[in-house]
Structures are given as C-alpha cells and as structure tokens.
Simulated scan of single mutants.
Amino acid sequence: MKIKEIIVVEGRDDTVAIHRAVEADTIETNGSAVSRSTLEKIKHAQEKRGVIIFTDPDYPGERIRKKVSEYVQGCKHAFLHKKDALPKHGRGIGVEHATPEAIREALSEAYLVNEVLPEVITKEDLMDAGLIGGPKAKERREKLGEKLRIGYTNGKQLHKRLMMFEISKEEFRQALMGILQEENNA
C-alpha cells in the first residue's frame, strides 16, 4: 500500500513502524516541542503532497496534533486505538507498538478536518450523556473516541472534535448506546 500524503509522526521508531506497514514518506516532530523549522517543513509538504497527522493516542500526541493542525491548514488526521498502541512487553504507548494491520487501518480511515461546521451535537447532549462531569465521564469519552475513531479528548475538547469530524447525531447516538450497553452488561 502506497500513501501519497506525507505522514507526520513523533519519532524515528514511529517512522520504522510506518515503513513496516505501508510505503510512505514521514516527517518526524521529535517530540512535543515541535520546532518552527519542522512546522514549515510540514506546511511545505501539505502544499506539495498533502499531510496525514498520525501521532500517539496520548496527551503529548494530542498536543502535537493540535500544534501542527493549527499551524498547517487542511491536514488529514489518522487515529490509532489505544489498545493497538500498547507494547507487548514493557511500558509506554505509541504508533511504534502497533501492528502493520492496525497502522494500515488507521491510515485508510484518515479524516479531512473541516474547521467551521454547524453545531449538530450540543454541549447539553454531552452533559446529558454523562460525557462531561460525573464519575464515568472520562471513561465514556475514552470509549467514545475509540468507537468514533476521533481519539481521546478532555471534556472541553470533545464538542470541538465531534464537530471537526462531522460526527452526525445518529453516529453519536449509536456509539453512545454501545457504550451504555457495555456498562450495563459489565
């Protein structure tokens, strides 16, 4: 599988994992302190071939994703499930631990983000669903992010992420029903 866009990853181990899964070029951010020159390189890549941001499903990865997408408009986003990013042995979480199959799946489902969208799911919907505030909110947001393949967010960012990825009320409702059903069966 050959990828036209250039994939933005966090480091060298991520690049190695990408190359095991697909034929693609990468740009490494070398951690969450993304330099101005790296951002310029990513911007140039976006203008020439397009960019897919594919960072680890953790807080530093989300910080990098946000920083790059604010600086470079029109990037696609690929998300890896947390369970697919865990090492077989040891600690940590990241793209470098994912199987080639999981990487190919995440890249095949890369989203193009539209920054300005009409509100479909309201903040009240999120509160009513127990996704903001409450004892199970964090766990539910994590599960929702996995089901909808939009990554984990905190309470403040969830609404924006749902809008960015144009999640319909029906998609939201179906995912939430699945989460609530899992909770009832546990």
Rank of each mutant, 00 (worst) to 15 (best):
L176K: 01
G155P: 01
D84I: 03
E62F: 07
R104I: 11
E70I: 04
S108T: 11
E183M: 06
G178Q: 10
E47F: 08
Q181M: 13
K147R: 14
M163E: 08
E40V: 12
K66P: 07
R173D: 13
G74Q: 01
Y111F: 15
V68H: 07
T29N: 04
P57D: 04
Q181F: 12
I179W: 05
E139V: 08
D84R: 09
T26S: 14
R91F: 04
E40W: 02
G151C: 08
T55D: 00
H44F: 11
G130M: 02
K160Y: 02
Q46N: 12
A175K: 07
K160F: 09
A21T: 05
E105L: 15
R49I: 02
V16Y: 14
I121E: 02
V68W: 02
L117S: 15
A110D: 06
G155R: 00
Y152R: 10
G130I: 00
A137C: 04
I64Y: 09
P118H: 10
E101F: 10
K2E: 14
E62Q: 14
E40M: 13
A110C: 05
Q157R: 12
K138C: 01
R104G: 10
G133V: 05
G74P: 06
T29P: 05
H19S: 14
Q181C: 12
K76N: 06
E70T: 10
T55K: 03
K76W: 12
K160R: 14
L107E: 03
A102I: 05
L176P: 04
K169V: 07
R12S: 11
A110G: 07
I167H: 03
N154P: 02
A45R: 09
G11E: 03
Q157Y: 03
